[in-house]
Design a protein around this nucleic acid. Structure first.
Lengths: 227, 227, 227, 227
DNA sequence: CATGAATGAGTTTTCATTCAT
DNA sequence: CATGAATGAAAACTCATTCAT
């Protein structure tokens, strides 16, 4: 079931195999329950080699977190184009986020659950990435507020709280979507967008937020909630 | 550091002390990293007594989850009066929720993180409590929609998704509020209420949802956002 | 399942209940695996009472051995009348032995297996009883040899070896009879008597040893192997 | 006191050392009382290595039983030559049996006492070997009966009972011989042979079974008790 | 480079045994 | 007398980690 046992691979490749195995094991078993034995076997290498390349369980875990955090941040960054309007950026970002977490559930588990529950040492790495995303969302909200030129004095702390809530909701939904069969990344993003942008008040008055046309213009728009 | 070493307590009392110590340890260290040794010491008793009363680490953990889940559900239930309007109920419930999780951060960690990541056996206990809360919120949203008599055909599944998102956001915010110094339960509840009820769209047009006046009995129920 | 919980029994009775429970538990679980908890519960008393009356697990076990050894020796002694001919005495003794071990399998297990495998301290108690039986058999053989006045110089050591072998065979057969459904004490005794007294050589020449008429003369003889 | 502490041995060798230590410890202390710590120390290795190679106490014990049973069966098998007359085969087999059990008292204790008193899982392994020996003896008796062409209708079940008794007596004598200083394997075998073959009845008439002359090759098979 | 061999330190769990009431 | 409350000591088992080859 592990990687095919091929001899003499370049170090970089071997390391990636190890990280793959580690992310999978940490994601499924949890940090404490994951054993170096299992990781080494899944990676198709001997345990001393894992130690030679990655020093210790802690370091290995840190490396996993770093790699997965970078990958997720990159995925979101790539999904967004800064020249588009704020709500469109948010929509694109959410889609990218849900798509990535759905595609890498073990990585997401490592970031969202494991890293946060085993000491500051690990949590801080994720916190950095999260900060980046929260800052991005914060700024989006601020821009949108300015564009709407109605309430330019929306308090800064309040915006931060909203961004935090939005990101938190997204994180929560990601776990929920991963655990609920039949929920796609698109649906998760639509639900949250509706929820966040329009607000329940508007929803109840039949004024939902409508997702913009998808990327390649000309494609039929996939309306999450067509009326 | 642990509880004062008092000898010969009745069983019920000792059991509570043990659960206190266990919740604290599980909450801070995580299920796997928490050792029975540490729990026993923190409880001020010997390990065999812990086993005599609570059988095994698994059973001890289950007992913690059950107790904390019951306490949280009870706190929310007590905070809400079913005769008030829907948004007021939601507001009260959120306040109770954030107040309780803030007052019992380790208990919250046990429920929110630990119980969900160590097997169905534990997760199901929390899931039951969560179900109760989601059902409550679902019904609140449905009632609110009916009261607004604008969109009575808001699909049932969609309401469930919204309730799920709202509860998820609340759960996330609780962790965030616990981890961020200076954020009170009141603030957390206000942020989420704004976010959820008014929607970011309204917020940006300076039409936020306003919290109702606090409790003075005899006051006619404050309908927060009359239109 | 344990004894009925009656309060205030005289000490002697309580002690017998405890020994009953202990013999049963030691016999079925083995000395090490038997727990004082289980014994106390089976006896229907609290653990401290067991300690009050019987001091320790070792002492309790010793008491069991003593009681069971005495009972077995007494049963055999009672079954034999010294005025009868040697082979009749042996036959009666064997029947008594097999009947008793079949009726008290746990006691027999305690004597035969448990006592011999947990230190000289215990083994010696059984050894004493065994010695008594071996001496009895030794003397029987010597008497029989003299009665047959053919080989009065049968070496003493040789007689001892034969007695030892006979007793050993009996012990072995007792375990076998207990474990084999459908084998009665009578059958076991007959098999051994045949084997020992007549010898395989005679058996093969159709000259088996024939059991004497049973005790109350006039009763139809139960011939184990009627021809 | 344990094996000389030599480092870095091939696995097969270390495993045998461990089994040696385990047989000794199990044989002397009993299964339950033997601790893995003691076994590891006696083997001159650390406990984890014992677990790495032999998985668990149960598995270790099973491995001991298997090894000792195979060795004993092999010893008896090797000691007997099937072309010789029946009583000679029995005599040779008994000698081999007593010699082996005397040379490996702990192994014999493991097979005879420990394995039979700690669950079917273990007993069945010994039972298989015992079956083999009982079958061998059963067949020897049947052959002898046929050779004596006097009582060809010796019932099959009866023969089985006799074989059982003979093997049981041998087992008992082995324990006795081990525990009694100055009793050699030869003597034990002679005692049993006398007992079993000639029968006490014959003995008392001064017609004992005589052991055949020892091995000198070329000698015509010594028919011990020509009539 | 790569690995089979090896372990110190810790885990959960159990048990015989004793007080204080 | 009788018992609920309590524990020291040790058991089986696991794991991250390191040599020697």
């Amino acid at each position: 079931m592990g990687a095919v046992k091929t001899k003499r691979m370049p170090r970089a490749v071997r390391e990636q195999q190890m990280l793959d195995a580690a992310v999978r094991t940490f994601g499924q078993r949890g940090y404490m329950a994951a054993s170096m034995d299992e990781i080494a076997e899944l990676a198709g290498v001997s345990k001393p080699l894992v130690y030679l390349y990655l020093n210790s369980k802690e370091d290995l875990f840190t490396a996993c977190i770093r790699r997965e955090a970078a990958a997720l941040a990159e995925a979101v960054r790539t999904g967004v184009r800064r020249e588009l309007p704020a709500d469109r950026q948010l929509w694109d970002g959410l889609q990218a986020f849900f798509a990535h977490t759905a595609a890498h559930p073990d990585g997401w588990s490592v970031l969202h659950i494991q890293a946060r529950t085993h000491g500051e040492r690990f949590a801080s790495v994720v916190a950095a990435m999260r900060e980046e995303i929260v800052a991005f969302v914060t700024q989006l909200i601020a821009v949108a507020a300015r564009e709407a030129h109605r309430d330019p004095d929306l308090a800064e702390g309040e915006v931060a709280g909203l961004a935090e809530a939005l990101v938190g909701a997204a994180e929560s939904l990601a776990a929920w979507a991963n655990a609920t069969p039949g929920v796609t990344a698109h649906q998760a993003a639509a639900t949250l967008m509706n929820f966040a942008w329009a607000g329940l008040g508007n929803l109840m008055e039949a004024r939902p937020w409508t997702p913009p046309l998808p990327d390649p213009p000309g494609t039929a728009p996939t309306h999450p909630r067509a009326r």
